[in-house]
């Protein structure tokens, strides 16, 4: 997570070991720190998580591709869904107080408001809040629902405390899929049941590609795959597909970049392709509901919103 260290390591990889492609990059801060160096050195970059929209926007480059998501991209369709399908009108928004949290919240709020919905309260606790009690006590009970984004250690605590403070019984919880990440579900327990979230991947997705992916992943790692597993897989697959398209030849960088740009295949998450203009991923968004099936918590997909119907656009 330290941009200085990341930059040193990138230099060592590119200058010292002459790598041809860089992939990974979980943190947006790190991605921004590496961006100029990698672009100047004409190294193709496949971002596998970092979500800052600007990485494929104002800071975009023909060398930068993103296979994961831009913040707001899968949050946006939830605004439509909440207003038109769930008939919610007044929503409280909560997210951690840092760039990604705010960007994601904005994605949801923009589309919810565009539909005519009202955000009656916004609460932004600090990232890594141990105790959500003080924030949960303030939530305006006159809302129709609460929309939140929390991930990592925050999401386990938040979901449990949301139930502890009795809000689960009063206000439906809408969220990003990050909140109910497959790795967190066993720790959240029954408190997670009923959460409706939007995401670009669910381990419960019932397609041949995903069933195969889930089976192989379980066999190898002994746990459920989650968004990170899918994103890692997709990043590697994109590189392989592009190499195969050029017959393994990367001497002509322009040709290789164009091969990456044209990669299309069916990933565990569904159809995969890049937006040729921004080189950010285009995906279908899934509205999922957390349920307990045969004693196990899963994120059942209840609606698929095709990429074409997603009104989200890269902030200019």
């Amino acid at each position: 997570m330290n941009p200085q260290v990341a930059l040193q390591k990138a230099r060592r990889l590119v200058d010292g070991e002459n790598v041809d492609i860089v992939t990974g990059i979980v943190s947006s801060t790190v991605a921004y720190a590496l961006r100029d160096y990698l672009v100047e050195n004409k190294v193709p970059v496949i971002i596998a998580n970092a979500g800052a929209a600007g990485l494929t926007g104002e800071k975009g480059s023909k060398y930068i591709f993103r296979v994961s998501f831009a913040n707001g991209q899968y949050e946006y369709p939830m605004g439509d869904y909440a207003y038109n399908q769930l008939n919610l009108r007044r929503v409280v928004v909560m997210a951690p107080d840092y760039a990604a949290g705010l960007e994601k919240a904005r994605g949801f709020m923009d589309s919810f408001r565009a539909n005519g919905g009202e955000i009656i309260q916004e609460i932004y606790p600090k990232l890594g809040t141990t105790d959500y009690g003080p924030y949960l006590a303030q939530v305006n009970k006159e809302a129709d629902a609460v929309w939140v984004h929390f991930s990592g250690t925050d999401c386990i605590r938040f979901v449990k405390q949301y139930a502890d403070y009795g809000l689960k019984d009063i206000l439906p919880l809408l969220a990003t899929g990050d909140l109910v990440d497959e790795s967190a579900l066993p720790h959240q327990g029954d408190a997670a049941i009923g959460i409706v979230s939007s995401h670009h991947y669910s381990a419960a997705l019932d397609t041949p590609e995903n069933r195969k992916f889930v089976t192989s992943y379980r066999a190898k790692y002994g746990e459920e795959p989650n968004m990170y597993a899918d994103q890692g897989y997709v990043a590697a697959r994109v590189i392989v597909e592009a190499l195969e398209a050029t017959g393994g030849d990367i001497s002509d960088t322009e040709k290789f970049l164009s091969a990456i740009r044209n990669v299309r295949f069916t990933a565990p998450r569904g159809p995969f392709k890049f937006d040729p203009e921004t080189q950010n991923v285009i995906f279908d968004t899934y509205i999922q509901k957390t349920e307990k099936i045969h004693g196990k918590l899963v994120n059942t997909v209840i609606k698929t919103i095709p990429a074409a119907e997603n009104g989200w656009s890269q902030p200019k």
Binding site: G152, R157, K160, D164, Y165, G166, H187, Q188, G189
Partner: peptide, 25 residues
Amino acid sequence: PQSLPKPVMLQGSISILGAIFPVYR
């Protein structure tokens, strides 16, 4: 990240003058 389960008898919440508060706390 993992989570520590609460003791069974301290799970749930109680209502104090209309305010819901977790028993564990």
